[in-house]
């Protein structure tokens, strides 16, 4: 009974985060994409990382759900398939690999989240660069995209960490 509730909450929250990413990007476009900085919201990634580290029993199929969310992201937002669809499960896989070695608390999760943000952003950057979707150089990417993105998403992490942890403690 306890398991089944989380099994519903996780995918619902995942898609809520997916669509909120887009809606909030539109509403706060003037602040998020203020030249030369562009900060990308990653609520989906945040939700996935929370699920990987806060779900102790490992019985959510996070990998498959994240691949599906990535597919919807590619279809609906960018129109270029196969980028987020692979990036998100990759992050889930890597996080699962490091999970047993970590003493889980607020700070370690924060670190893991920064690393994962970097991995996803870098993966998308490299893929789009090879696919000639856009042109940009590495220094601009690091300073004007990666930096602000990490700053904004860390703020969201700090705000959402305790509520989401309470949710997981209560449900599972």
């Amino acid at each position: 009974m306890r398991v089944s509730r989380l099994r519903i909450i996780f995918p619902v929250g995942l898609f809520l985060a997916l669509f909120l990413d887009g809606s909030l990007s539109n509403v706060f476009a003037a602040h998020l994409f203020k030249y030369p900085y562009s900060s990308v919201l990653h609520l989906v990634l945040l939700w996935i990382i929370f699920a990987v580290f806060l779900d102790d029993r490992n019985d959510l199929s996070i990998g498959i759900w994240s691949a599906f969310a990535g597919l919807v992201f590619d279809w609906y937002y960018t129109g270029i398939l196969g980028v987020y669809m692979v990036a998100l499960p990759l992050v889930v896989y890597l996080s699962r690999q490091v999970k047993p070695w970590l003493d889980l608390n607020f700070l370690t999760m924060l670190m893991v989240y920064i690393i994962n943000l970097t991995i996803v952003e870098a993966f998308v950057y490299i893929w789009y660069l090879i696919g000639k979707v856009m042109t940009s150089n590495l220094a601009d990417f690091a300073v004007y995209t990666l930096g602000p993105t990490i700053a904004v998403n860390l703020a969201l992490f700090v705000i959402l960490y305790y509520p989401v942890r309470q949710l997981y403690l209560k449900v599972s």
Partner: peptide, 8 residues
């Protein structure tokens, strides 16, 4: 929505 990406 707006695409949450800095490239598009």
């Amino acid at each position: 929505t707006r695409t949450p990406s800095s490239w598009m």
